[in-house]
Design a protein around this nucleic acid. Structure first.
Lengths: 206, 206, 206, 206
DNA sequence: TATGAATGAGACTTCATTCAT
DNA sequence: AATGAATGAAGTCTCATTCAT
């Protein structure tokens, strides 16, 4: 009856926390989850463990989240929201395409290398219907964000191109992180080069 | 949420199967696991289920694999070995760099779109120490393979560049698969363009 | 996710037990459940407790029953089947209506006073969809059984009448048990009298 | 399966409500409980749910009732008191035995078919020591009520007979309700006939 | 060697009840 | 008096793994 990830309609936190205490509690639990994933991996992420690390009882956790999955979804949102915000800001403030791109990539790197273990783990969220939807939504938001910048600056075919560029960067960043690279500064020029190259008009044959 | 994988001491099959029957048994179990992952996801991959689908008893499964993790490792090896083999062949038979690259990418696409659900799922293997090591080894093998081609054809800085190229392709392919793209032919030119662009000598700032 | 009685499709035991050991295991668990209900009430009927009393691990219990509810359904069936069997035999062997009725009532009394606490408790099965259906089916079977006898012996309006007679007896027997009466012999004549009276042709006014 | 009711020391409301507000609060909570049982069954009857439906905080509920069980006991009393009152009135105003009986039965039918789901559910109160005592007391009160009428009208052996008559009616009414019968008018003559038949002097064997 | 019944730690979740505010 | 956040014991159920046959 319980387990296996029920296709849940409850990937939302249980209370729109209105009071300061509630907000703090939710934040504490999400952060506890983040730290466990970071330090001990998905396998150690049990609801009891999260509650304990957050300094609450298990009952309290379930007062704020209807399920383990909802907690995870919230964590995913929290992390991705941060990235999305930075990307949005970059695309809105940059004067032209080049710096916009550059700042987006920088944001991506900050996101990945700020808490590398966490960021990497969140790319591999245990699949489940609800989580997958959440994930899809957030990925699309990022793709759209970039597509908009490209379009605004007159780049053609932007939707697919944007998705490819995001995917390409993500692939390179994740692989670097997976190999244990910790130097974002060393990665940045490689990313920039790749992205610029792909954005270059295709040289005609010959 | 995720059936935790008890950390097993070795991720090797229990016996170098000497008899034809053993080889067939191992293959049947690995394939059963693959089919379950493909059709019903990680959550449904229980050892009992695998044994049943393979037409064996659970006891027999544990005669061939010391742990669930070892079974997974074998599956991962099987899949990646196939890709490695094709890539090696491509790099060895191709006359020059361009067709070598092209055939590598084609191999990657075949691998991903041959059994898309499986390939995608295997990028999200529930992390664990042993699996992670296995995964690392196989990724490095691929990276080295490509680095060798690049070096042979006089491309400088080949190690990092190779890793980046592999990562870039993997990122784009996975993202496409995740979005539900099923048309490898449509993806190929985008990959080729990206790889070629990155391989192009950097235009001087002039 | 777990609790509250999920409207289960699984009120059937998990294995049609084919081997002697399985049959014994199922029987042991059902009987353990019966004894717990008898001695300590519904509240003490936990799956862990049942398994322990049956001398099995909790895992084994779930190998034979897909849910707590299925175990209960099996117990209900076991008990009611016994009653149904006796009633069927009574109705088939009795030469005329009077002894048929008499033997049915005697069967009812045996059933109730054989294991009074259990019989009483089973009249108050915690409602749930699956259990309720099971219960309904078994009640109807009993009603139909009696209706058939009545019809065979030329009593008109038998369906409703039979249901009423069964209900009337059940009410009297349960109430007696609830009051702590333990003397079936004292109850039998009262039941007989009531049933005969109701079966008597209605005396015309005047 | 059944939310176990912690054995509470007393099943009395916490205060003889002296103020109008208290009386209203108690009534609101009891009615909320009734409605939940009616509409969503025993499984949904949680104290938090009751408090919410009644428009109070869970803390307030525990100011008026020492335990969930006390709340249930109060509900049981409320429902049975209503029935008892009607029965008492019937027995006190009726001129002779026949109409007294008739009105008692009518009261029983009103009680059952007025709020059928509730009345039926209350016959299946999750057993517990305190509730069982409460239930016993109320059943006895009803039995005594009827025994008194019988005695007053010169029917011999009234105590047991009364108990049997009550039980018989209860059995028939509950079974009808359980089968989904909703027509009290159709049930009344069957009940009357049964009761009258049982009250008839036993015909000599002749 | 093969079988599959048995194990049991441990996961998720609920809900009656308390108590600081 | 009222609130509702917090508690935590306890319940159901799963699944990797073992071992007697």
């Amino acid at each position: 009856m319980v387990p296996s990830i029920a296709a849940a309609s409850h990937a939302e936190p249980r209370k729109r926390p209105s009071q300061a205490r509630s907000i703090a509690a939710v934040a504490a639990m999400v952060e506890a989850a983040a730290r466990i994933i970071e330090t001990r991996g998905w396998a150690a992420l049990t609801t009891n463990h999260v509650a304990e690390r957050a300094g609450f009882s298990i009952g309290s956790l379930y007062q704020y989240f209807p399920s383990k999955e909802a907690l995870l979804a919230e964590l995913l949102r929290r992390e991705r929201a941060q990235l999305l915000r930075e990307v949005r800001q970059a695309t809105e403030t940059a004067a032209s395409l080049a710096p916009a791109i550059e700042q987006c990539i920088a944001a991506g790197l900050r996101h990945q290398f700020g808490r590398p273990a966490l960021a990497l783990a969140l790319e591999y969220v245990p699949a489940s219907l609800a989580m997958h939807q959440e994930d899809t939504v957030l990925r699309q938001a990022l793709d759209r964000q970039l597509a908009a910048v490209l379009a605004r600056h007159g780049v053609a075919g932007s939707a697919t191109l944007a998705a490819d560029l995001v995917a390409l960067c993500r692939g390179m960043i994740d692989a670097a992180a997976l190999r244990g690279e910790t130097d974002a500064a060393a990665l940045l020029p490689r990313l920039l080069r790749a992205v610029r190259a792909v954005l270059q008009p295709v040289p005609g044959p010959q």
